[in-house]
């Protein structure tokens, strides 16, 4: 039963404001991803929830307890770190059971819990190894196991996949998602990678400069970005922006079509320009054109054979476009 509420959270070091009056309600069993560029305060926020960092003002409520001044161990949380934080001098078993031993649990109970977690994570045969003998993915599993055995009501993940290579990251992502469905606990997950955020989250919290920019399901954030920053941050390749009268007009590369291959579009608009770059990704191609002094990128299916320097026409639907106020950069 652990919903997590952040009420009017502020954080400053000396004179620098890190987090500014932040409010967020996380539902029980929800998978929340905090995403944003480095320095946006997402990790600090996570560490504050964990009890590793002071709150300058405001309240953190886990379950129905205000935990502002509780020690980490009394908050019913567990945390998985970016560099795994596995102790090199201890076996996998010792690492996973470290917290349980600190809590002075009975030996049999410790063994039972560790073995259960190891089974779920499929690391049962690695328990006697040292961390140095494990691959990156295995280490990450062990560090998740270490968090699991404490039966926390809230899991905190601090960029857990950043140290893995791209391929492993994809498969670990799927596993973490699966794990959430098995464990049915609240997860607060910090990352700078918007793909991770999109694929994992029930709801995404986009942050910048210590402020929440938008909270919403991945689809909401993608389809209806609250402001120009969110629009640019979520989605890859990045959304195109064109200054237009008193607003920014944003259109995602995947919403732009080659004129000759376009489906029927409501409210169709066209842009033409010179091809300035072509990147072939295999199943699709990225074409960038220069029109006036703006660059527009389109993502088109298949192999694109046009030459750089040639003129080309793009079309898109105004219904797919996003408008942002030029001054406030808020969605209009």
């Amino acid at each position: 039963m652990a919903k997590v509420s952040l009420k009017n959270i502020k954080k400053s070091y000396d004179d620098t404001q890190i987090l500014d009056d932040l409010n967020l309600d996380i539902k029980n069993k929800e998978f929340i991803v905090l995403v944003g560029p480095s320095g946006c305060g997402k990790s600090t926020l996570l560490r504050m929830i964990a009890g590793l960092e002071d709150i300058t003002a405001g309240d953190i409520i886990i379950g129905d307890k205000i935990v502002n001044h509780l020690e980490p161990k009394d908050r019913n949380i567990a945390m998985v770190f970016q560099n795994y934080a596995l102790y090199p001098h201890m076996s996998v078993f010792k690492n996973i059971s470290f917290g349980l031993r600190a809590a002075k649990l009975a030996k049999a109970q410790i063994k039972e819990k560790v073995e259960a977690a190891a089974k779920i994570l499929e690391i049962s045969d690695l328990l006697e190894r040292k961390p140095a003998q494990l691959s990156g993915g295995q280490r990450q599993r062990v560090s998740i196991g270490r968090a699991m055995v404490r039966n926390p009501e809230v899991f905190l993940f601090d960029e857990p996949l950043s140290n893995l290579d791209a391929k492993l990251r994809n498969s670990m992502r799927a596993e973490i998602k699966k794990l959430h469905q098995t464990l049915k606990t609240t997860i607060i997950y910090v990352t700078h990678d918007q793909i991770e955020a999109m694929t994992l989250a029930d709801r995404i919290v986009v942050m910048k400069d210590g402020k929440i920019q938008q909270v919403g399901t991945p689809l909401q954030v993608y389809k209806k970005p609250a402001n120009k920053f969110v629009a640019g941050f979520i989605g890859s390749p990045e959304m195109n922006f064109v200054e237009y009268a008193d607003k920014f007009l944003g259109i995602r590369p995947e919403d732009i079509y080659l004129k000759e291959a376009a489906p029927t579009l409501k409210n169709q608009k066209s842009i033409s320009g010179k091809i300035s770059a072509v990147e072939t990704l295999g199943p699709e191609s990225l074409i960038t054109i220069t029109s006036g002094n703006s660059h527009i990128t389109a993502k088109v299916p298949g192999l694109f054979k046009g030459k750089i320097g040639k003129n080309i026409d793009f079309v898109f639907s105004m219904t797919d476009s996003h408008s942002f106020d030029k001054k406030t950069e808020e969605r209009m």
Partner: peptide
Amino acid sequence: EYLDAARIDGLNEFQIFIEVALPL
């Protein structure tokens, strides 16, 4: 992170020094 992980596990600062930091 090694020290933070131990803090979350409920060790006090002296235990962290002896059991986590020294062996490293």
